[in-house]
Design a protein around this nucleic acid. Structure first.
Lengths: 368, 368
DNA sequence: TCCGTCATTTGGATCGATCCAAAACGTCAA
DNA sequence: TTGACGTTTTGGATCGATCCAAATGACGGA
């Protein structure tokens, strides 16, 4: 369905300048030159470049040969000026260094490349100002669609702004406003956290603390809802506890250290993401406690490292690559049909049980 | 020196459509409309957009007000068609999920943003084919310069190809060919590894294994050279040992496990990067060995996690952010003066000693 | 032979910002 | 008053690919 827009000269070779002229002041090769060389009109060459089915096979190969021979370089600027499409999709995430997003971007890349689109990646570093600059630039570049994992504190009106820009936007993992406005792809984290709590409760845990993010966006609320709901269902609401803070490994470490110093330390931790969970594990180890034995830890995302670390981390798997793929496919669909009804894709989040939730809590064991 | 190219409308607000028309079929606002609205010519408006010093202050503010009022969007395609510069720099790295590159990209972003340039980021995933696609696309986009951390197995002729493309290219961390051709920014890893070996030797280690990458690029050779040189200087050449393999945490884990099963296990490991080192630490822990006591471990890069992990990882600090900044600055200089002599910037790499090399090797202790 | 049909091909016209040479406007000294 | 000079402003011409309506060519049936 999606038309392939790869061009022949995408496959360049590494021989020195082609047969054509390519000196220091070489005039740029244009469609006109190719047309002359191949004995056709500019229009036909243009059609060949667009992989249009209108041109005859023999003409196509002849034109492609000429383009190759002259060392032609497609001029996106000129194309962009005339046509609405650019075969480019903007991707803005808030923390590219988090392996979760690395995997997600890989999934996005795969789908887009296969469809002849190219991702234009940017890292907002969770700064709304940076994010704005990138979005503006992407609009100037006429990207066909936007995949956005919004920075914290992004004003909810951003989605409306993008709508007036007529720029299709797919929100990933986080969404602005109470319910997702417009297209959204994410994981069912509420359910995942719910399952995690239920699992901990079934092991006998009662004091379960949630290490949440320090700002109030949708991804944070989902975790909180799942947590509260499950604690309530287990009749443990009064013992529930939420700690807010930064979402890095270092912050997770510090927060957990502080937590362990308190009188009523929890027997189990559910962490906003795996980075925080890995920080928590480090904190436990520094205090001479054994994760999974002295205190259970559950992460969220199930990044590769979760299964590798020692002890292996129980985590709610959010399947970043699948989310990236789904989002990219949705973007392509939205480009094809901008007026279609907004989609909200929520992939299941499954609890991967490993060593950090292997046994019942100590206190329970002692009392039994 | 470098002319600032930021435009006024970079700072948009989130109010609904500006006073101008912005319905579903809104005609795009162009310089012509702004000119009419402000009572000047297209040319003048163009000059304002370019922040040219030629226009009078009063005219400038009037034009900017009109642009704002009409909801103008700069059209990079049209600009690109006419002018040689695009205020865009391509950045291609081979593993964006590695925190080292996350930090490096942050440094690049800072410098470029400050100069009014925008990074166009791409992740080759160490695949030369992907890398080629991105480079081609960036040429089509007329990026002003390229910051390239080449994928493994990249044909060395690529640099010549880029030269014939007349595209300034700065190589980062890795370079193609024996000695860097063209501009290069990296860290003095040879010296860093040398220092690491010397440090281990001073602690009494004799069996020091290097966990290297599985392909033969410059960054790999530097490590090898530093290692060989230092081992030789210590008279330990016959005991030196190099193991090649993939450069991920998981691969580091597996390789170390295999290594520990062998008869003549080393007392110290030097790892190609921190990810491999962290994998090695996990392997030791799985075998019930204590990193730093039963076997020393040294990483390279000094990513944030190195200091946090338990036990804290000794690492050769390569200062990714500083490297990113230096490279971006060099790129700006190269854009300003394309004919300048190629620069080769090598920043010092310093050994950060932590817990994983805290004590003398066991065997030595036993024998003493 | 002529005409309709289908598959290809083709010349402008066009997109919107930039470049350039030249014009307009002051200002001031001769 | 004139002219020289410095500062601002301006009207085409232009970049190179795409769009569109119309032309061309080939073929088969009447």
């Amino acid at each position: 369905m999606t038309d392939i827009e790869m061009r022949q000269e995408d496959h360049f070779d590494h021989r020195s300048p082609p047969s054509g002229p390519a000196g220091p002041g070489a005039p740029r090769v244009t469609l006109k030159e190719i047309a002359a060389h191949a004995g056709v009109s500019r229009s036909t060459v243009s059609l060949v470049m667009q992989e249009s089915p209108l041109v005859a096979e023999t003409t196509r190969t002849r034109v492609q040969a000429s383009a190759q021979a002259l060392g032609y370089v497609y001029n996106r600027g000129a194309a962009m000026l005339r046509s609405a499409r650019t075969a480019t999709v903007g991707v803005v995430v808030h923390d590219i260094a988090n392996p979760f997003f690395g995997a997600m971007v890989a999934g996005i890349d795969d789908v887009l490349q296969a469809a002849g689109y190219v991702p234009f990646l940017a890292n907002s570093g969770d700064s709304p100002a940076r994010q704005e600059r990138f979005l503006t630039r992407m609009r100037e570049q006429h990207v066909d669609a936007l995949l956005l994992c919004p920075a914290e504190e992004t004003p909810p009106a951003l989605i409306d702004t993008l709508a007036t820009w007529q720029l299709p936007c797919i929100q990933l993992m986080r969404h602005l406003g109470e319910t997702p406005q417009g297209d959204y792809v994410g994981a069912d984290i509420r359910q995942g956290v719910h399952d995690a709590v239920a699992h901990l409760v079934s092991l006998g845990h009662r004091h379960i603390t949630l290490l949440a993010g320090d700002s109030d966006h949708s991804a944070d609320r989902e975790r909180l809802d799942g947590y509260r709901q499950a604690m309530q269902a287990a009749g443990l609401e009064v013992e529930s506890r939420v700690l807010r803070g930064e979402l890095t490994r270092g912050a997770g470490l510090q927060r957990t250290l502080a937590l362990l110093d308190e009188a009523a330390a929890p027997t189990a931790l559910i962490c906003h993401n795996d980075l925080v969970a890995l920080g928590a594990i480090l904190a436990l180890q520094r205090r001479g406690l054994r994760p999974g034995l002295d205190c259970a830890v559950v992460g969220i995302d199930d990044i590769d490292e979760a299964a590798l670390t020692h002890p292996a981390l129980t985590s709610v798997a959010t399947h970043p690559e699948a989310i990236g793929r789904a989002a990219a496919e949705l973007a392509l669909a939205r480009i094809a049909d901008p007026q279609g009804a907004p989609a909200r894709i929520v992939l299941p989040a499954t609890l991967e049980i490993r060593d950090t939730t292997s046994t019942s809590p100590r206190r329970e064991q002692e009392s039994s």
